[in-house]
């Protein structure tokens, strides 16, 4: 979706403000929101692409006014509500009002193995890659209403294939529960002037990682 999360190239947000000796979390609730989100993925049964879409699929005003972990929280609440795990009236009441669903919590003993395993997204590929390193490609002009990982600022631009990553889970389908539908993934590099025109900083090159269906030969 063309949402406020897709920030590449927007102006007006002001300077980057580094924070010396920054802690991992800035408030006790951030710790809990972080951990709840990680711990609920297994009983909830959603994947990382569904999580990302749940976070980004909100109004620009809401997206820009919430902090990072507030967005995580909103995404978590939405994913749980969609599955009838926890509903808005329960959160308002601060206690369970409806019967629980039969899903198993993540046991403490499974935390380390779960983190160690992570969620690799590489998959066997049935067909050879369509492009090779050095090929010129154009990113397609697409505006899907659902989840996509092709940022607006590179759509319709010509770049060069720099790295091949093999086949990976396709987020656009995985986010809507339509399966992994793996596709070849490439690093595509653009000259700064191709994207930003004469205003580009001299010598700038920018890459995105793009799935096969985002690209066409140029």
């Amino acid at each position: 979706m063309d949402g406020a999360h897709d920030m590449g190239g927007m102006d007006g947000f002001g300077p980057v403000v580094p924070e010396p000796n920054e802690p991992a979390f800035h408030a006790p609730w951030e710790r809990r929101a972080f951990a709840l989100t990680l711990a609920m993925a297994r009983p909830g049964g959603w994947n990382i692409d569904m999580s990302r879409f749940a976070r980004e699929n909100r109004s620009p005003a809401e997206h820009l006014s919430k902090s990072y972990y507030q967005i995580w929280l909103a995404g978590l609440e939405q994913l749980m509500a969609e599955r009838g795990l926890v509903t808005a009236d329960e959160i308002a009441a601060g206690q369970p009002l409806h019967p629980r669903r039969e899903v198993a919590a993540l046991p403490p003993a499974d935390v380390a193995p779960m983190l160690a395993r992570g969620g690799p997204t590489d998959r066997p590929s049935a067909a050879p890659a369509r492009f090779k390193i050095g090929d010129r490609v154009r990113t397609r002009t697409i505006h899907p209403r659902g989840h996509t990982r092709l940022p607006r600022y590179v759509r319709g631009h010509v770049g060069v294939i720099e790295l091949l990553h093999g086949a990976h889970v396709f987020p656009d389908s995985n986010a809507r529960g339509a399966g992994e539908q793996p596709q070849f993934l490439y690093t595509v590099t653009f000259d700064g002037r191709e994207i930003w025109g004469d205003d580009a900083e001299p010598g700038l090159r920018v890459s995105v990682d793009a799935w096969d269906s985002y690209l066409e030969p140029a």
Binding site: A39, E77, P107, V111, A112, L115
Partner: peptide
């Protein structure tokens, strides 16, 4: 949220502590 999730048995607070 943590209260509800714990009471429903969806999360184990000890697992949350470990993640943090």
């Amino acid at each position: 949220l943590e209260t509800i999730l714990t009471e429903k048995g969806y999360v184990d607070p000890a697992a949350l502590d470990l993640l943090i």
